[in-house]
């Protein structure tokens, strides 16, 4: 709270009840399958609850403008970090896979193997197993 504003207790209780109701709502909504929307709804309810706590319990509402600007700048920072990194992740051309856990001795790629191989018959060059241009993200699709 800013300079010595005494907030009525009744307001606290009303905010508290709203928060509890929102918690119940968010759990209820989570039990219903909305596809991708589940995450969006859960986050917006959480943001609403967070802003209630910040505005009333933490007194941003009666604080000076400077503090509010600072909070928005910090939130913009987090959003920027998330947004840019996600944009990179979603538009990446390189394909991911889960690498086999290799133990060095296991590799048969020793140099002497290079000239030891003698093919029975030289098969026609197989078409390149062009690594799939864009498998869905993450190996476990």
């Amino acid at each position: 709270m800013s300079q010595h504003v005494v907030v009525p207790v009744a307001l606290y209780q009303r905010i508290f009840v709203t928060l509890i109701v929102l918690t119940v709502v968010t759990v209820a909504v989570a039990l219903v399958d909305l596809g991708e929307w589940n995450a969006v709804v859960a986050l917006s309810i959480a943001s609403l609850k967070a802003s209630l706590v910040a505005l009333y319990f933490m007194g941003l509402r009666w604080g000076d403008r400077m503090t509010r600007v600072a909070v928005l700048v910090a939130l913009a920072g987090v959003a920027l970090l998330f947004g840019a990194s996600l944009n990179d992740d979603l538009t990446r051309e390189s394909k991911t896979y889960l690498p086999a856990e290799l133990r060095p001795e296991m590799l048969d790629f020793s140099v002497q193997g290079l000239d030891g191989l003698t093919p029975e018959v030289a098969p026609p060059p197989a078409p390149p197993p062009a690594a799939a241009p864009d498998t869905a993200h993450g190996a476990a699709h």
Binding site: L114, D115, G116, L117, T118, P119, A122, P123, P125, A126, P129
Partner: peptide, 10 residues
Amino acid sequence: RGAAPVSMAE
């Protein structure tokens, strides 16, 4: 280098 190479499929 002597040894004929083996294709990947082979």
